[in-house]
């Protein structure tokens, strides 16, 4: 028997659903999300997908253009660089360092930063209040500079760079989480819950957290794009991931000398980096927009 809907039923979606609904409505937002997810998937699978070893040098195929060019070879889909290394494999494995590593770094730093930020957000002592302004001022120092200082102290190298960028991302998370929690804390619904006698932990997890989640997710995207830019810029300057390891930034750094010979070695890593960062930025921007739409409606 067919179900007949006699009564029109009004659905009232939760705030999170509302954000998702208005996010989903835009084609560009969804496209960016899919691109980002596809990128992440490819990066995870890159060790399986990469056709060659990244440091294998094919002396018979030095500076070979991509396969869609006349003189290209299907064996090397994106061509090879000046040392005869396969571009596709280098791009894929490079993704591990350029996208995978930042995701890991953001995950670690967000965990630390958000916990501290949440605790700071509900701490209401006078001493803290006066310190917060100072903290805000010190936060204006860019994360890239902080990473540079840490590298100057520890020296270059994979571990040090990862540590430096992770550390330099934490303050932003503290700042954003603290402000978001702080702002919610003063709203009437939280006061009402407090008057109902809810514990601080309950307030934080069940009352405030659902309402600051989108803001935090937005900060995640911002930090991710910053982390990718920072690690690529460091590698580009020669302070990050060191040479034989493929990384999009360091691949770009080498390419300027050989741009006449093999323009693709500059274009391909750059485009990949560009698309990745743009996808992340669009996701973050759409999220902000969806959030605003929810507040307005």
């Amino acid at each position: 028997m067919p179900q007949i809907n006699l009564y029109h039923h009004d659905e009232t979606p939760s705030p999170l659903q509302l954000v998702w609904k208005s996010y989903r409505a835009r084609f560009l937002s969804m496209a960016a999300l899919y691109v980002l997810l596809a990128m992440i998937l490819v990066v995870i699978l890159s060790p399986l997908l990469a056709p060659f070893n990244t440091s294998a040098q094919f002396s018979d195929a030095i500076a070979l253009p991509p396969s869609w060019v006349e003189s290209g070879n299907m064996k090397y889909l994106f061509g090879t660089d000046d040392l005869g290394r396969d571009m596709l494999s280098r791009l894929l494995i490079g993704g591990l360092y350029s996208l995978g590593l930042p995701i890991l770094m953001v995950a670690v730093s967000s965990l630390i930063g958000m916990s501290i930020g949440a605790l700071a957000g509900i701490d209401r002592t006078i001493k803290y209040q006066s310190l917060s302004r100072l903290f805000d001022t010190l936060l204006s120092i860019p994360s890239f500079l902080m990473a540079l200082i840490i590298i100057a102290i520890l020296g270059t190298g994979f571990n040090n760079v990862a540590f430096a960028i992770t550390l330099s991302l934490i303050p932003q998370f503290i700042f954003v989480t603290r402000n978001a929690v702080h702002e919610e804390w003063h709203k009437d619904y939280v006061t009402a819950s407090r008057l109902n006698g809810c514990s601080k932990a309950y307030l934080l997890y069940r009352v405030i957290l659902p309402n600051v989640t989108p803001t935090l997710v937005m900060q995640l995207t911002v930090s991710l794009s910053v982390a990718i830019m920072d690690i690529a810029a460091l590698s580009f300057l020669g302070l990050g991931i060191q040479a034989p390891t493929p990384e999009w930034g360091s691949m770009l750094a080498r390419s300027l000398d050989e741009v006449y010979l093999s323009p693709w070695s500059m274009v391909l890593p750059g485009v990949t980096l560009f698309i990745t960062i743009m996808a992340i930025n669009i996701v973050g921007d759409s999220l902000r927009r969806a959030l605003k739409e929810r507040v307005n409606s």
């Binding site: 810029a233 930034g249 750059g270």
Partner: peptide, 13 residues
């Protein structure tokens, strides 16, 4: 959006 996402060193190149 594009201008904001382009890595500065690549743009320079």
């Amino acid at each position: 959006m594009m201008g904001y996402s382009i890595p500065v060193f690549w743009l320079a190149q």
